[in-house]
Design a protein around this nucleic acid. Structure first.
Lengths: 201, 201
DNA sequence: TAGGTTTTAGAGGCATCTCTCTAGAAGGAG
DNA sequence: CTCCTTCTAGAGAGATGCCTCTAAAACCTA
């Protein structure tokens, strides 16, 4: 089976993730990752065809871990509970995995998405489609009478994804941890944002 | 008074802002700014001691324009109206000045804050202190009975700054404009998040 | 042991970026 | 006109980064 590997793909991705969490995508240079992992650059290029593929691996590794819990929370129970639970999950996952959360606070374009290998772009799109479908289900369950479906989706996305991430962003990108009460603040905010509007007139 | 300038400071900052809006701080290389402005690199270094100073100018130019309207909105009327008005202002300013808004969606650290000239760092800190004081006033006006002051401040900051920016972020960083109903969605969200909790028990 | 495969190891080419430095152009003051 | 100041103009040094390429190490099979 050939010479045994000293540097696994996962180990290299972990080293790259740590660098990205601390210094953003710009800190993920091939030389820096090699130094961080104690590996020669040749080993890096043996695993990844180029820097873009490494950045894609970092991003997708973080995204798929994040979305696994989201899918579970979004599917649990009726729409209102699913929404609130997801908002809480976003915060608690970010607290449990601050490095990967810091990665996801950047744009995929910052991780060189336009130059990702075709297979990685496909993984990215299918992951997003999966979450999108689940979000749409919750949005249909929370739609107000006469509200357009796309508007309900935007409201739900704001309450369930964007707001919790905003709550977490200030702390994580400042180098600190997420404070204790953040889950409850996110859950309470989602409840308030999605509460049915009292009948007008 | 010597040879007249062909390339003004403002023009160079504008060129750098356009590059930063499109490609993030990494796209703001001295060579790229010179190319964008049609100027030789010497003219750039004549105006700015180095890249960090140019990035500081870009950031502060955007921040001070943004905060001017915020100060006005935060000072207008009693706390609840000031809060909702500020949330609305954040969105409408971002729509009116998408390039500068895109700059502010990054961290100052991404614009090399640790190496800014001393004077620029002072400008940054005083700007933030001014906004912080106004936010604190609004937070005191919205504090619930028994709530800690720092908690109220975090809630207000979330409703009035972080949430509107999150609403805008997805669109601006995706290269699109901010959609029409966003102001009202931000204002309504702020109202919901800051509404007094009905007496418990 | 011999041959084949996988992986480490790192030197070096080529590009790009920041910043310095020199030369001179373009204006005002005397 | 002459001197002085301000600014343009761009060549080039030095650093860093991406990636290629060669050589050999380490393991398996036969």
């Amino acid at each position: 089976m050939g010479r045994p590997a000293r540097f696994s793909t996962d180990g290299l991705v972990a080293a790259a993730t740590a660098l990205a969490a601390e210094g953003g995508p710009a800190a993920v240079t091939m030389a820096a990752v090699a130094r961080e992992a104690g590996a020669p650059s040749g080993s890096l290029y043996h695993r990844f065809p180029g820097r873009s593929a490494l950045l894609a691996a970092v991003w997708l590794h973080a995204l798929e871990a994040f979305q696994a819990g989201c899918r579970e929370a979004l599917s649990a129970g009726p729409a209102p509970e699913a929404a609130v639970g997801t908002a809480r999950h976003v915060v608690s996952w970010s607290r449990a995995h601050p490095d990967r959360a810091r990665v996801l606070l950047h744009r995929p374009a910052d991780f060189d998405l336009p130059h990702w290998p075709e297979a990685d772009r496909a993984r990215w799109e299918s992951a997003n489609a999966g979450i999108g479908a689940l979000l749409a289900r919750v949005a249909r369950g929370l739609r107000e009478p006469g509200e357009e479906e796309s508007h309900a989706l935007e409201r739900v996305r704001l309450a369930v994804v964007d707001l919790p991430l905003a709550l977490v962003r200030r702390h994580l990108l400042g180098g600190r941890d997420v404070p204790g009460g953040a889950e409850e603040l996110a859950a309470d905010s989602a409840r308030r944002l999605l509460a049915p509007r009292p009948a007008t007139g």
